[in-house]
Computed example of a mutant assay.
Amino acid sequence: MQNFSAREKFLITNTLNCLPVLLQGRAVLIDLHNETSVAGIINIADGHMTCELTDAVFIDRNGEQHAFDNFMVRNRMIRLLHLPADLDIRTELLQQQQKRSGRFKKTNTKRTFKQKRAEDRHKETLDHITKQQNDNK
Rank of each mutant, 00 (worst) to 15 (best):
E119F: 03
F71R: 00
V57G: 00
R79W: 08
K116V: 10
A39Q: 15
G25Q: 03
T125I: 14
T50Q: 10
N62H: 12
M72F: 06
D120G: 05
T50I: 04
N108Y: 11
N14W: 02
G47Y: 01
D120A: 12
I78G: 01
L11K: 01
V38M: 09
I30A: 00
N17K: 08
T54S: 14
K105S: 12
T125A: 07
D135Q: 15
M1D: 09
R61Y: 08
M72V: 08
L29W: 09
C18T: 12
Q2L: 07
T50C: 08
N62Q: 15
N75L: 00
Q115T: 13
I44G: 00
A6V: 14
T54W: 03
L93E: 01
K114C: 07
D135E: 13
L87I: 15
Q65T: 11
D60M: 06
L80M: 13
A56V: 01
I129T: 06
A45R: 12
A45E: 05
T50W: 08
N75K: 07
Q98K: 14
T109V: 11
D86Q: 07
P20E: 05
R90P: 01
K9Y: 03
A45Q: 05
I89Q: 03
E52H: 09
E64F: 12
D135C: 10
L83P: 00
E64P: 05
L81A: 02
F10A: 09
R111L: 15
N134C: 06
A27I: 05
G102H: 09
I89N: 01
L94I: 11
Q96T: 02
Q24F: 05
R100K: 10
F10P: 01
E124K: 10
G47Q: 01
V28I: 12
